[in-house]
């Protein structure tokens, strides 16, 4: 019998599969399709202190083996997430959920994280210092070790639950940023967020995305994500959550062999809403095929 369990910052997951923030809403769209309690957990839609409509349309551009998005952190704001979304989620998801939080200042991050930390449904705080689609916030915090560490330290003062920092791949030295976050008290690192990209519409000769650039994700970024998971997990002592282009049970195993303790699945949910269900169902067979009895045993196994 294959053992899929992993331990993420002190909480056991029944399997390492976690739908990534921004591709799974607040869960209930997918709960119409399958019992989402089969997931390890999921990371809900990036939440900010104030409600946000997000960026102008078009926000989506198709690419070879992936998409560019520039949603711009559309969300109802932390108060409505607590008063409306979490009660709705409670009806279809009984496990601890990962709260994904973004912001435009150190104070805002600390405030929003502090509020969601008090919610019993929240198991982990995922601090998104890597959104490429907002100005004056988001990614600028995740591209500088000092700025990232400053956010982590401020958030850690406000919360009791494990803090996982989601990092941007749009940097020259991912390891230095991860180490700075670890030193500031982060309990885990998630990577990668999307890669900055763009497309041009040949008919209009203008960028496809209204905001010109957006975040590229999908199977095409998998090797980049894998490489960064390898580098970071080799340098830090805290768990690493691998994210980027994961679309199959085999991708999950590869990410874990590179050093991931758990694995987020993003883009794949958007083209196949059953993607995570199928990955979880296919994991035991893939483990058997490659002679793996327990997933926890293979973390960093390729090193």
């Amino acid at each position: 019998m294959e053992d899929l369990r992993v331990n993420l910052c002190g909480t056991e997951l029944s399997n390492p599969v976690i739908p990534a923030s921004g591709t799974f809403g607040f869960g209930y769209e997918f709960a119409e399709l399958y019992d989402i309690n089969i997931l390890g957990t999921f990371s809900f839609k990036g939440t900010t202190r104030e409600p946000r409509y997000g960026n102008p349309l078009p926000r989506i551009a198709e690419c070879e083996a992936g998409i560019i998005n520039s949603i711009g952190l559309q969300n109802p704001g932390v108060d409505k997430v607590i008063s409306e979304e979490l009660p709705k989620l409670k009806k279809c998801f009984g496990k601890p959920v990962m709260a994904n939080i973004s912001g435009f200042s150190v104070e805002e991050f600390a405030y929003t994280c502090g509020k969601l930390d008090k919610e019993p449904q929240v198991g982990w705080i995922e601090v998104n210092v890597s959104c490429p689609n907002v100005h004056g916030g988001g990614m600028i915090f995740g591209t500088d070790p000092k700025a990232a560490a400053g956010i982590v330290a401020a958030v850690k003062k406000e919360v009791k639950k494990p803090v996982i920092v989601k990092l941007s791949p749009n940097v020259t030295d991912i390891v230095s940023i991860a180490l700075a976050c670890e030193a500031a008290g982060a309990d885990g690192i998630c990577l990668i967020n999307t890669m900055l990209g763009m497309r041009i519409n040949l008919k209009t000769k203008r960028p496809v995305i209204a905001n010109t650039m957006g975040g590229f994700s999908g199977p095409a970024v998998f090797p980049v994500a894998l490489r960064m998971v390898w580098q970071v997990s080799s340098a830090v002592k805290i768990p690493v959550v691998g994210c980027g282009g994961v679309s199959s049970a085999e991708d999950v195993i590869e990410m874990m062999l590179a050093g991931a303790t758990a694995v987020e699945v993003g883009c794949a949910n958007l083209v196949n809403p059953y993607a995570c269900k199928e990955i979880i169902e296919n994991l035991p067979g893939a483990m058997k095929k490659y002679g793996i009895t327990g997933l926890s045993d293979i973390i960093g196994g390729a090193k």
Partner: peptide, 27 residues
């Protein structure tokens, strides 16, 4: 009609502003 990502309300790629707040064209 809008350029969509998922088509079922998950990605927020096609949200428009309406008299009742942001609404997803697909969902």
């Amino acid at each position: 009609e809008e350029r969509m990502g998922c088509g079922f309300g998950a990605c927020m790629g096609c949200s428009i502003m309406t008299a009742n707040g942001p609404k997803r064209v697909c969902k």
